[in-house]
């Protein structure tokens, strides 16, 4: 039977590095994608993921299993992403096209996938670019909520715990964000 995240954290408190490795393996992909969707920069997202795991390791001794591990982890990641965005002031310094170019210029492995016809891949890539562009244009508080709910599958009450806001605020941010995304994505079509 697979051990829970909280049990692994308690083992880590006793110095068990293997439990830390298990946690890393379990969460590396969701965490990377969360950071990536927040900062829209894959190399930076990888650095942030590494930093989140470092912080988890360093603060393992102070961890108390009163809340879910995932909530705690995403709170660390959210704060880190928002700090990074604030420091870099990415929106002011970089136009939105730069976000798209930073990833779209690389070689896409999906182009050689025989199950994906080339034109479908191109269309999909184009849509992905539009989504990334639209998400990057959202205010950060709305982007956090939409990313956690839509992509990372967190429940509304869990998101409320992560961002430390009432659940009603989370839902209203979600509604405002989704309405905004609908307008942006429908205009581009």
């Amino acid at each position: 039977m697979e051990k829970s995240d909280e049990a692994l954290m308690l083992q880590l408190q006793t110095g068990d590095l293997l439990s830390f490795d298990t946690l890393v393996k379990r969460w590396e992909k969701p965490l990377l994608n969360y950071c990536y969707r927040m900062v829209n920069d894959l190399p930076l997202a990888e650095d942030l993921r590494q930093e989140v795991f470092l912080r988890i390791y360093k603060s393992a001794k102070t961890y108390r299993p009163t809340a879910q591990f995932s909530t705690w982890m995403y709170r660390i990641a959210t704060n880190l992403c928002l700090d990074t965005l604030t420091k870099q002031q990415r929106r002011k310094e970089m136009p939105i096209d730069t976000y798209l170019d930073s990833e779209s210029e690389g070689f896409d492995e999906r182009l050689i996938d025989p199950s994906n016809p080339p034109h479908a891949v191109v269309i999909r890539k184009e849509t992905e670019s539009r989504v990334r562009s639209a998400l990057a244009c959202l205010p950060e508080d709305q982007r956090v909520v939409i990313t956690l709910r839509h992509y990372n599958g967190m429940k509304f009450h869990e998101i409320a715990a992560i961002v430390e806001r009432p659940i009603s605020t989370v839902k209203s941010r979600m509604t405002a964000g989704m309405e905004r995304l609908s307008r942006m994505l429908s205009k581009q079509e």
């Binding site: 990377l32 795991f53 849509t127 992905e128 990334r132 939409i146 994505l185 429908s186």
Partner: peptide
């Protein structure tokens, strides 16, 4: 519209880049 937006959002596929566990061990 919301259903369409959700479907469009799904077009941003997940990336998968395994973490460099050795580098992480070194860092900790």
């Amino acid at each position: 519209n919301l259903n369409e937006t959700q479907q469009t959002l799904d077009q941003w596929e997940e990336v998968d880049r395994p973490i460099d566990i050795e580098a992480l061990h070194k860092a900790i």
